[in-house]
């Protein structure tokens, strides 16, 4: 069942170039995707191609100089900015990239507790820490005291305790070692298996393929193709878009080739 639908989304930024001249800079254009409960949709594409902005647009937390058009619906209902404000953190949760998304002067336990909506905050936080193998004293630590893996688990905890039914994970695995990446990805699989819809934004197509149900290929501000994960095999003959094929064949364990003019 589709829970979140993005129709024809475009995002552009107004910028002042020289003096008072204004230009609009389009970063996302005519983008369509659909999130389904119980499934993971991986959005893959190059770094800096505007994938994070897609996440921010869904949550309604774009900077003030951004303009959006198109339509996002949640559970059949159009997401206005007012509705987004009501839903974020409650029905739609974000798992951000790095520890810099935690307030440096607040203990992480209380930051996790502030995400709890539907139950006793302290209890929920202690349970989720136990579940993610975080020691009790981690709750009293400040973000700078966390290791990369611990920070990862704390960030996932905030989404876990919120009880949201849509989880948007924005590049959750950069700069982590293999074991931690695996653990993080498994956490998202668990979310989906509990019935959440998960959007996993990543530039790491290889690890995304391990856990995703569908893969949306993001290029130059739009989604070229949404392919089921099974299509990514062999020579990639079942992939429809040439960019997707090129991306697949460029992986080291496949052909490790590139197409003319792509770089």
């Amino acid at each position: 069942m589709s829970i979140l639908k993005v129709n024809n989304l475009s995002v552009s930024f107004k910028q002042y170039t020289s003096g008072l001249r204004q230009t609009t800079h389009q970063v996302i254009s005519n983008l369509n995707i659909e999130l389904v409960s119980g499934e993971i949709l991986a959005v893959v594409g190059a770094s800096g191609s505007g994938k994070s902005l897609l996440a921010h647009a869904i949550l309604g937390i774009l900077p003030l100089n951004a303009e959006t058009s198109g339509q996002i619906t949640y559970d059949g209902e159009v997401l206005t900015s007012k509705r987004q404000e009501q839903l974020r953190g409650k029905e739609i949760a974000l798992v951000p990239q790095s520890v810099s998304y935690l307030n440096p002067l607040m203990r992480v336990g209380s930051q996790v507790r502030s995400s709890v909506r539907k139950r006793n905050a302290k209890q929920a936080q202690e349970e989720v820490f136990q579940r993610y193998h975080l020691k009790k004293e981690v709750g009293n630590m400040y973000p700078f005291q966390l290791s990369g893996g611990m920070a990862r688990r704390v960030l996932v905890s905030t989404a876990m305790v919120s009880g949201a039914s849509v989880i948007i994970a924005d590049e959750p695995t950069p700069g982590l070692d293999k074991v931690v990446i695996e653990e993080a990805l498994n956490n998202f699989r668990e979310f989906a298996d509990q019935g959440c819809a998960v959007m996993l934004i990543s530039h790491d197509i290889e690890s995304a393929l391990k856990i995703a149900d569908k893969v949306a290929v993001f290029y130059e501000g739009t989604v070229l193709e949404v392919a089921p994960v099974e299509d990514f095999e062999g020579k990639g003959d079942r992939l429809r878009h040439p960019y997707t094929q090129a991306l697949w064949r460029a992986l080291p364990q496949n052909d490790f080739t590139w197409i003319e003019g792509s770089i």
Partner: peptide, 22 residues
Amino acid sequence: SSDYVVFARARGEKGFTLFWRH
């Protein structure tokens, strides 16, 4: 405009609480 305020907003915090806490 910091990451942690963006994230706080993503978690539904707003207005005076957001200003006070972060």
